[in-house]
Simulated scan of single mutants.
Amino acid sequence: MGRRQTLRARHGGYVRRTHAGKPGKPGAPGRVLARDLGWRREARSAWWCGLGLGGALLLADVARGSVNWPRGGCWTVIAMTLVAVLWPPYVTAGENWLAVRGLLRERRVRTDLLTRVRRSDGMSPRLVLRDVAGNRVEFDPKVLTANPLLWHHLDRGVRRARESGLLREGAMPLGALADRIDSEGARRLLRSAGLE
């Protein structure tokens, strides 16, 4: 019996994919209990940046008197490309799952069946989660800092995965993130009480 069959047997078959391609019990859609509250603001900013760049390029062409359909189409494509590059992923969570929806598709992991958590540091830091079914999500850890309810749902699932012995890699990035979220929360409480 292979590792994946053993995990399926141990967890009652929860690793199966549903007909929609999402991990979890077949037919259980999973209610959204937490979401990224700053996403709308960031999405609006992406649109405004794209519109601003496209408008500036078009106005420059109008001022020079060289505007035509192909050039206008080119500026529109450049503006839409900027919107696509700046478009923020939308992070939601529920009971034992976390989803990240990009511009074209949504990826989802079972947080209670996580096998690996790592932090990827680069120009923008990313938190990468992988579950036993091979599903993977990647997002900015600042989303968890700004949305304690999202962190709560992820943390509960991570604890279950750790207790079942599935999660063996990822204690350090999660510990550092938990400390950061706790200190941010304490700072917010002090600020709201007028003690900071």
Rank of each mutant, 00 (worst) to 15 (best):
G2Q: 09
R3F: 13
A9E: 10
R10A: 10
H11R: 06
H11W: 05
V15C: 13
R16D: 15
T18M: 00
T18I: 02
G21D: 07
K22Y: 13
G24K: 02
G24Q: 01
G24W: 00
K25V: 00
P29G: 06
A34E: 03
L37I: 10
W39M: 05
W39R: 02
R41Y: 06
R41L: 10
E42K: 15
A43W: 00
A43M: 02
R44S: 13
R44Y: 09
A46Q: 06
W48E: 09
L51W: 13
G52V: 05
G52W: 02
L53D: 05
G54Q: 05
G54L: 04
G55Y: 06
G55H: 07
A56W: 07
L57Y: 03
L58G: 09
L58I: 08
A60F: 06
A60P: 00
D61N: 10
V62S: 07
G65L: 09
G65F: 08
G65E: 08
W69D: 13
P70Q: 07
G73A: 10
G73R: 00
C74T: 13
W75M: 01
A79Y: 05
A79E: 07
A79F: 02
A79L: 07
L82I: 14
V85S: 12
L86V: 04
W87F: 14
Y90A: 11
V91S: 01
V91H: 01
A99C: 08
L104T: 15
E106Q: 06
V109I: 06
V109Q: 02
V109P: 00
R110V: 00
L113Y: 07
L114G: 06
T115M: 09
S120T: 11
D121T: 14
M123F: 14
M123W: 14
L129T: 00
D131Y: 00
V132M: 08
A133I: 03
G134D: 08
R136N: 09
V137W: 03
F139V: 02
F139W: 04
F139Q: 02
V143G: 03
V143N: 05
T145S: 12
A146H: 07
H153C: 06
L154G: 01
R156K: 14
V158D: 08
R159D: 15
R160Q: 09
R160V: 02
A161R: 01
E163P: 03
S164I: 08
G165F: 03
R168K: 15
E169C: 07
G170F: 01
P173Y: 04
A176T: 12
L177S: 03
A178E: 09
A178L: 10
R180E: 09
I181T: 05
D182H: 10
A186C: 09
R188E: 15
L189Y: 10
L190P: 05
R191K: 14
R191D: 13
S192H: 13
S192Y: 12
S192I: 12
G194R: 07
